[in-house]
Write a protein that binds this DNA or RNA. Structure first.
Lengths: 192, 192
DNA sequence: TTTAGACGATAACAAATGTTATCACTTTTA
DNA sequence: TAAAAGTGATAACATTTGTTATCGTCTAAA
């Protein structure tokens, strides 16, 4: 199997049973893509054409608010999916953008490919269901964090659950992610 | 068809094709439940046993934070589903509670019923997928609102998109929903 | 029908958070 | 390799938002 699709094979196999024959046939439709640091792979207003699976790198997801300010709400790293799943499934313009924070390698899956998976894979619909459920769980947890935790709580959780993020993402983007200003985050960090 | 399952039939039919025969068989598993105002139908810490479909009434969803304060994050009304879908699907303890704000009538669907739907309905998996997608879209929009709008923006949106909510839900719960204090909401409303 | 509680407005004050600017340092780019 | 841009800390100040308390009205329960 090509090196580039080993990781996504492992992840999809953790969701559904898929035979070797199905995989060989299905995975021939994957494409890989190299993304340069700072490159935007989904621009707000455009229809999201692909689900990206990250082999290497970091992506950030951000809204632009009424004042033109970028609000980063998600970071995606190796072995996770990245997409505007709503824009992708409904084929409507995206409300946010996705940008590479490092040189990044992704495997792309088009909507045609997902939809044909519903048909040709024995467990294609189930794969679609589980993908949607995973996305839902992620956003569910994010909402819980926003409603029940202070920005400092959320910062501390990042520190314990995801320490490497601080080496890979500049602090002002983390502040945005925590919905506070960069000055305020700096204060919280350095308060004794 | 029994009066109580007319609405849910309409909603499910909008998601998938389901034959009369399938529906008669499948819908026999629904139960209805009358909930008194203030009654809690899902208690944080318990496993969510059912998806509720609301025929009449209003439910509120709320977390309890570290200070013991209730944080209302969602209201569900007629013809929508109500559940902790994560707790329900994974059969893990719920992180939030659901309480009736009015006398409410719901149709209940157990996990067994959903899972057997995956098997016996021609489009059962698809129904599961679309339900998960709908939940995802809802939370997706909520996160967008939190990151891009001020509490006042969100209050104004409620006013235009969902004006009847103010007749049915006390203002301090709306303030919680907007992630601000009730005093502050009162100030925003009455500022000139 | 009375009474306790719930509700929403408001004031006074305290705390949290944002804004702007400056500085030192590092990284990227021409 | 020099210049430009990015990064993070910090100070001073302004603004937003929360907290507590009071009050009048309304609602629900004994």
């Amino acid at each position: 199997m090509k090196e580039q699709i080993k990781n996504i094979h492992q992840v999809i196999s953790s969701f559904i049973e898929i035979s070797n024959e199905e995989w060989v046939n299905y995975s021939s439709m994957f494409k890989t893509k190299e993304i340069k640091k700072k490159e935007i792979i989904l621009q707000e207003g455009n229809i999201c054409k692909d689900v990206f699976f990250i082999n290497k790198g970091v992506l950030r997801f951000y809204f632009v608010d009424n004042n033109g300010e970028e609000k980063t709400f998600h970071f995606a790293i190796e072995n996770t999916f990245a997409t505007d799943y709503k824009s992708f499934l409904k084929q409507i313009p995206s409300n946010y953008s996705i940008q590479a924070l490092e040189d990044t390698q992704v495997v792309t899956m088009s909507l045609d490919m997902l939809l044909s998976g519903y048909e040709i894979l024995k467990n294609g619909e189930k794969l679609g269901r589980l993908l949607a459920e995973e996305y839902f769980f992620m956003f569910n947890d994010k909402i819980q964090a926003i409603y029940t935790q202070t920005p400092l709580d959320r910062y501390n959780n990042l520190t314990t659950n995801f320490p490497e993020i601080f080496q890979r993402v500049p602090q002002h983007l983390i502040a945005s992610y925590l919905t506070i200003s960069s000055v305020h985050l700096s204060r919280l960090k350095n308060a004794h």
